[in-house]
Design a protein around this nucleic acid. Sequence first.
DNA 1: CTGAAAGCGCTTACAG
DNA 2: CTGAAAGCGCTTACAG
Lengths: 347, 347
Amino acid sequence: MVKQLGTKKVSIMDVAKEAGVSITTVSRVVNRSGVVSKKTQENVLQVIEKLRYKPDISARLLASKQVGKILGIVSPYFEGIFGSYYFSEIMRGINSVSMKEELDTLFHLSGHFTSMELSNRLVFNPSFVQGVLLIDLDGDESKVKNLKEENLSFVVINHYLENLSVHCIGIDNRSAAINAVNYLIEIGHRRIAAITGNLSTQAGIGRLEGYKKSLIDHGFDVRDDYIVGNSFHPDDARKSMEALLNLPQHPTAVFVASDEMAQEAMDVIFERGLKVPDDISMIGFDDEPLAAKARIPLTTLQQPLFDMGKMAAELILDIIQKPDKTEETKILLPTQLIKRESCKSIG
Amino acid sequence: MVKQLGTKKVSIMDVAKEAGVSITTVSRVVNRSGVVSKKTQENVLQVIEKLRYKPDISARLLASKQVGKILGIVSPYFEGIFGSYYFSEIMRGINSVSMKEELDTLFHLSGHFTSMELSNRLVFNPSFVQGVLLIDLDGDESKVKNLKEENLSFVVINHYLENLSVHCIGIDNRSAAINAVNYLIEIGHRRIAAITGNLSTQAGIGRLEGYKKSLIDHGFDVRDDYIVGNSFHPDDARKSMEALLNLPQHPTAVFVASDEMAQEAMDVIFERGLKVPDDISMIGFDDEPLAAKARIPLTTLQQPLFDMGKMAAELILDIIQKPDKTEETKILLPTQLIKRESCKSIG
DNA sequence: CTGAAAGCGCTTACAG
DNA sequence: CTGAAAGCGCTTACAG
């Protein structure tokens, strides 16, 4: 917090004096509450205009014990978060309800929040914000435990908390990956690799787990050299794909943890003079717009990002409405395999 | 605003009583201000922990006459704003400074704000927000006049206010368009059309003006039937391009007000069995990532969106620092013509 | 229809 | 090192 502007602030008292009425009356006309005679009202309104009076919101909230019409949104920051399909879609979902409810949104972008932040950041202050939406915990569930102890409504987005009694809504990454790899096996692939995402995120972990699970269920070996990467950065996908291609025997199919990375990996394949899907089949994750428009339209997993944001926002509004509700709502959203041209049956 | 949660709030008084000290002391340890004996401090800290005390921010701001560490951001809402290159880049620029300064951002997305909103919306409240960034006025400069009269720092982004003494930072759309059309003329085009953007925005107007200016400067006629569209929606670009193609003599070059629209227009051209750039040359605006990656890499105007956001954020911080500063900062950012493969010389 | 007064939960000189 | 008290700018019973 920082000192206010030097300009002398005009308060309700100034207006009352100038208008020759009590502050109660001024308050009444400002809030259009109670009864005020037409005459007084007009007079006060004029004075307000003349003095450019603006009620102090802090005082207002404090005196009325109300909460701002604000929804807090907390997300770890990552390079490219703005413009990413992931974040944009979730925001679009959240916004579809916050606009309808006339809620503004207060953003706090930062990887981690300490308990000190908890009490100091406005985003986390229950007298400020109706509730907060926590996007993508970044693997650190302990923060949520701290928040639980605060008098603050919140729901976690894109991270399903199995063992914590917390409102959350996530995506079934594991099943999605199983689906993808099952499909690859179905169409004859045996040498299937995985380029994984950040393994400190639930998405990264779940997608890798599903990959392994499908392989094991079909009686295939899980090869260490076929599991590469630990980040959602396209640059890393490039390195991962190169590593895969440098193997004595490269895979015939690759399951990649994001479309963006899959795109980059495909570029690497082309650069080596190989072809998708003829030499290597590819499956991405996200169903970004560019996945369909790519040189080789990408087979991928579609996840309901918009719905997730929307449902989360609806959920928090619901929670606020019913402060006595004790059971937690936990939602796990399904994905859908979108088959396009980047996969080919072999054998 | 909405009533607070039912849970009984614990106040500084509760902590003071439980700890057997005055509220002054509690305040001191909460704020790490003044001197407190190690012993007392530890004791108070424990009670705070035990009672889960969280200072009320409103009371705090009110009593201390401070302002929240928040930057307000106001933008007209449009379908697809999240995920748009335009908005994302500006946000990325703003965020690059707000994160460094540890400022959170309060968003208000709405086409218009009335003077009532001015006094009620938290985004506009000087005791809440350090200042506000107004993105893209949507053509309505009168709002800015109202804001001017408030005791609130703000800077306007992507709208250059010629005649108002207001901090603003815009893009030189007119020069950009002149540049583009000059180039088309240089490489031999004479039948040059324009698909315009929303003509109630400065970008839409400026780009059209520049187009006309270049034509006139070269002694060419400005043909009404070669000026189509009045929106930034790709769907409308489709209709516009169709209209152009239905003309007895279609243009040999089209200057389009955005890359996204240019993309759509190119699709229409292809569908008609024509080719870019062989039959028709195209120039877009924005230099979106997809412009370079399109089937036919698009010649376009690059505008410094990121810089605009960044500079605006830096500017407002500067203004807040120096409340006595009277001169307005007005910045008009240049664009750059990026030549790619969608234009071909003729004649 | 109007106003005096208490109170919201803090901070901050000031005094000790 | 600690506390009593005034004050921040409002709202809201309550009384008239």
